[in-house]
């Protein structure tokens, strides 16, 4: 089946981002297709490449990044959620005169139209917040 996963929760504030990651990994393991990952609201922090964790602690954004790359997933962070939370890609960073982009390049900044598209083209939409 085709799934879209929507993540509203920031890492390290609640368990939900971890649950979303485990669920997505389990979906792929079972042979299902992930049509899109959509990070919304505080969920955009899951795509922050400047995340530093202790060596014995899971780096959730890095885990997402690897899962996305390893499985060639389509991952989107909502533009209106991400910019106001400091999640910018290289071109947004340049436009706003920041030193560097904060977003992993495995995720793309886009609008809510991408969520609507994902909703209409997926068999299941599963939300984690």
């Amino acid at each position: 089946m085709k799934f879209t996963i929507v993540v509203y929760a920031a890492p390290y504030s609640s368990e939900a981002a971890h649950s979303a990651l485990q669920f997505t990994a389990a979906l792929l393991k079972a042979g299902h297709e992930v049509y899109r990952l959509f990070f919304f609201g505080d969920g955009v922090h899951n795509a922050n490449r400047f995340t530093v964790t202790a060596t014995d602690e899971e780096n959730l954004p890095l885990s997402w990044h690897r899962l996305i790359l390893d499985n060639n997933l389509d991952a989107v962070v909502c533009v209106s959620s991400s910019l106001k939370r400091g999640l910018v890609d290289a071109s947004e960073a340049k436009r706003h005169d920041f030193d560097a982009g904060t977003l992993f390049d495995s995720s793309e900044i886009a609008g809510l139209g991408q969520l609507v598209d994902a909703t209409t083209n997926s068999d299941r939409v599963v939300n984690f917040g």
């Binding site: 089946m1 799934f3 485990q22 669920f23 990994a25 389990a26 979906l27 393991k29 079972a30 299902h32 299941r124 599963v126």
Partner: peptide, 9 residues
């Protein structure tokens, strides 16, 4: 989690 996936299908 594997059962969670099955249930969601």
């Amino acid at each position: 989690y594997s059962k969670f996936v099955e249930l969601s299908c």
